Amino acid sequence: MTEPEFLATTRAFYDAIAADYADRFRDELAGEPLSRALLATFAELVRAERADAKVAELGCGPGRVTHHLHGLGLDIRGIDLSPRMVELARATYPGLDFTEGSLFDLPLGDGELTGAIAWYSIIHTPAERLPEVFAEFARVLAPGGHLLLAFQVGDELLRIDQPFGHPVALDFRRQQPDRIAELVREAGLRLTSRTLREPEEGGQPTPQAYLLARKPA
């Protein structure tokens, strides 16, 4: 089966910028108390569901969020499309499990997870393909399992060209929370929380959305 061009483009983009990206965002969570609070909420919900909960970050990049959630007591692994990102994550956090994989075909069994997080990883998927991604998220979640999504809010398409001086380009797709919530419900999950962070002076220039959902028990 031929791989969609957008997946190949996304992989090549992140392979090229992996080291610079990891350096740029390594300590970002330290300055984001709201993000840390939402991650802590997710971790608490997952632990309350099952003491032996299995969790995965879907689109983990260099592994910083996976590592943070591990520090909150979760048995978590990271999955990413980019081999170079996976390589960096393994080198930076050798005690954690990182694996290559696509959001469309996760290397996980049906109902394997009690928690799944997609932290800004749905932003390169064309709108018409998002239902497939959410169906895959629902497949790997066990009944009662929790999903946390983070993404930028908007309607416009942002194209980033030559980041950090590398000769690559990629489209970044902002989303509307109502539309993502609808897709979550269509995948058979129940939305439990919706948080909107407004643009920050000197910080993120666009609103950010965080959705929590649960697979019915």
Score class of each variant (00 low, 15 high):
Pro4Val: 08
Leu7Ser: 07
Leu7Lys: 14
Leu7Trp: 12
Ala8Met: 13
Thr10Asp: 10
Arg11Ile: 01
Asp15His: 10
Ile17Gly: 07
Asp27Trp: 08
Glu28Ala: 12
Leu29Val: 01
Ala30Ser: 11
Gly31Cys: 11
Gly31Pro: 12
Gly31Lys: 12
Pro33Gln: 10
Pro33Trp: 01
Arg36Trp: 02
Ala37Pro: 01
Leu38Ile: 02
Leu38Cys: 11
Ala40Arg: 13
Thr41Gly: 08
Val46Asp: 06
Asp52Pro: 00
Lys54Phe: 11
Val55Lys: 01
Gly61Asp: 10
Gly61Pro: 05
Pro62Phe: 05
Arg64Thr: 12
Val65Gly: 02
Leu69Lys: 10
His70Trp: 15
His70Val: 12
His70Pro: 09
Gly71Ile: 14
Gly71His: 14
Gly73Asn: 07
Leu74Val: 06
Asp75Cys: 05
Ser82Asp: 05
Pro83Trp: 06
Arg84His: 09
Arg84Ile: 02
Val86Trp: 10
Val86Glu: 02
Glu87Thr: 05
Pro94Ser: 12
Asp97Phe: 03
Thr99Phe: 03
Thr99Asp: 00
Glu100Asn: 14
Gly101Asp: 01
Leu106Cys: 09
Gly111Tyr: 04
Gly111Glu: 00
Glu112Val: 02
Thr114Tyr: 07
Thr114Pro: 04
Ala116Cys: 14
Ile117Ser: 06
Ile117Tyr: 00
Ala118Val: 00
Tyr120Gln: 08
Tyr120Cys: 09
Ser121Trp: 10
Ile123Leu: 11
Pro126Gln: 14
Pro126Asp: 12
Ala135His: 09
Phe137Lys: 01
Leu141Thr: 05
Leu141Gln: 04
Ala142Pro: 04
Pro143Ala: 11
Leu149His: 01
Ala150Cys: 14
Ala150Val: 13
Phe151Asn: 07
Gly154Asn: 08
Leu157Glu: 14
Asp161Asn: 11
Gln162Glu: 13
Pro163Met: 03
Phe164Ala: 05
Gly165Ala: 06
Asp171His: 03
Asp171Gly: 07
Gln175Tyr: 06
Arg179Asn: 13
Ile180Glu: 02
Ala181Tyr: 05
Glu182Asp: 15
Val184Thr: 11
Arg185Ile: 05
Arg185Pro: 05
Ala187Cys: 03
Gly188Asp: 10
Leu191Gly: 06
Thr195Val: 15
Leu196Asn: 09
Glu198Thr: 10
Pro205Trp: 03
Ala209Lys: 10
Ala209Pro: 04
Ala209Val: 08
Leu212Phe: 12
Leu212Pro: 00
Ala213His: 01
